[in-house]
Amino acid sequence: MSLHESHDASAALVKMVNDIADYFQSEPDRELAVDGIVNHLTRFWEPRMRRKIVAYFAERKGEGLSELARAAVARLADAARSAA
């Protein structure tokens, strides 16, 4: 099987969000931590990537996302719904 065939786009995005969330773990104010993750995703992620993680979140119920990452992606999903 080639790398192309075995490519799992969602896994890479889940890892990236979890890595970002790990940084914000030490923020004592949970809301600020979630804000920080959402802000980071908004400022640095290309929109297709954000749409993909939101779709993944909806389809897989956030499987594999850490608690903080899940909260942040949920907020992104809410914002996407509101904008639609």
């Binding site: 890479a12 290309e46 929109p47 297709r48 990537m49």
Partner: peptide, 18 residues
């Protein structure tokens, strides 16, 4: 007005066919 792909994102997007 939105950020584009970083190099590793380009690789991922390429493998996704996008």
């Amino acid at each position: 007005n939105e950020p584009g792909l970083r190099i590793p994102n380009m690789f991922e997007a390429a493998l996704d066919g996008e």
